[in-house]
Amino acid sequence: MYRLPFADGTAVKVFDDFRSHRPRGRIDLYAVDGEKPYRVVAARAGRIVAIQDDYAEQQSGRPAAECHNNYVWIAHEDGEWSNYSHLAHHSVTGKAGLKVGDRVKAGAYLGDEGAVGCAMLDHVHFEVVRPPSGPGIDAGGFLLDNADSKRELEPRFCGVPRQTVVKDGTYIARPC
């Protein structure tokens, strides 16, 4: 079970859900109410396995392989990983003070919502995966061995009807 990856009380809208996102299996969410900058938080407890926080450019319209996204990958005790992409420049290592290897609790501040990389607007690209053995992701932060989205898992969210988010749905972020 995951929480929505925004600070408590933030209203969050889904513009692509697990089925409508291309490629399938990811979720794009953006904050619509609450205090700016919108704070992105860990959806579950875990250990940070990868961070990219140096990019500042929005590159909408380019193929994903040519974009430079900021991201955080978190490994969870059950073997699943969660990913938070398009975070604002230096909000992870600077504002949140995080580094690879840090343990975070559910609800821990990770950084600010942004539009870095292949993003049309400020949002968080969120995904839950069962990673391959070995490094798990490539240099761009993309999951390895994920043809046809075979490693993507549909997250179940606490406090959300039927525990799944749907395109155009609006939800309130809260702890589990």
Rank of each mutant, 00 (worst) to 15 (best):
A75V: 00
Y2L: 15
P161R: 01
S91V: 10
M1K: 11
G94F: 02
K105T: 11
E57C: 02
N69E: 12
T170D: 04
H89F: 15
A147I: 04
G101C: 08
G140Y: 02
I27Q: 07
V165M: 08
A11M: 06
T10L: 05
F15T: 11
A147L: 11
N83T: 09
I51E: 07
G140S: 15
D138T: 08
F15W: 12
T164I: 13
N70G: 07
I172M: 10
V128N: 05
P161N: 09
V104G: 06
H76A: 11
A173T: 06
D102A: 14
I74Q: 03
I172L: 14
G140Q: 14
D145I: 03
Y30V: 07
W81P: 10
A139T: 10
A65G: 01
P155V: 09
Y30N: 11
A31R: 03
V49S: 12
A42G: 08
H76K: 09
E80K: 13
S82H: 02
D78I: 04
K36H: 10
D168I: 00
L4N: 08
A115K: 14
T93S: 15
Q58M: 12
F18L: 08
D17V: 01
V12F: 03
G97R: 04
G111S: 07
D53F: 01
K95A: 15
A56K: 14
D54M: 06
W73S: 03
R24W: 10
V166D: 00
V165Y: 00
Y84P: 09
D28I: 02
I172C: 03
V129D: 06
D78T: 05
K99T: 11
D102T: 04
G159T: 05
P175V: 05
R3S: 15
L98H: 01
D148I: 00
A11H: 09
L121A: 15
P37M: 13
A50N: 12
G46R: 01
P175G: 15
S149Q: 02
Q163D: 13
